[in-house]
Amino acid sequence: MHIPDAFIPIWQGAIYWIIALVFIALALRWAKNEMNEEKLPLVAVLAAGIFALQSFNLPVSMGTSGHLVGGALAAIILGSPFAAIFILTLVLIVQAILFGDGGITVLGTNIINMGVIGGFVGFYSFKGLMGVTKSMPVSVFLAAWLACLIPALACAVEMFLAGTFPLTEGLVAMGIYHAIIGVIEGIVTVAAIYLITTARPDLVDIGVKTPSGA
């Protein structure tokens, strides 16, 4: 769901950029305060993994493909939505500048959708679901699914505001395609978190250390 420059007028892109910069500043503060040296290997591996996963367009039928976003993965495993914003922002900058995947004036919009919305939805729905279901795989799967679907719906609304898509048609199509892509996102996120927690349980900050799951 990388928005190209042609889809949003420059003045609207500028507004999204300003909002994105606020969250980027908060993500940098997170990096300064929370990202200790023990977490750096995980942050590096997540950056590589999320870049690679985003380059892999999987067929989702209906003449459509989709790739994973990785916002929920980064936020859940590093224990903060700002971790997702930190990593996704940098990955999106590399993609836009080097590969033309997503525009420049709309980069702020893409950061808001995949980093900010993806990170917050992924992290807080995981925490909430973990409290209710007490099941890590179920909570991760649903959180990752939501963190794929909701940014796509936000994207449809932005496309409507930009005059690029009509509202209902955009929401229906974006919703259907990303509900399917989200299933793959959910499965891969569960697998990735399982692999990482197996390899390095000490690095993982699932954020549910108390018995209540909070």
């Binding site: 690679a52 367009n57 003449g63 449809a156 199509a173």
Partner: peptide
């Protein structure tokens, strides 16, 4: 990094050429 490179490497050969969700939606509208 090896796992990431493997995923990316497989993607070069296996990735779907179909438009992604956003592009598909653009074609639909």
């Amino acid at each position: 990094i090896i796992v990431a490179l493997l995923i990316g490497g497989i993607a070069v050969f296996m990735a779907s050429g179909d438009p992604d969700g956003l592009e598909s939606t653009a074609l639909v509208v």
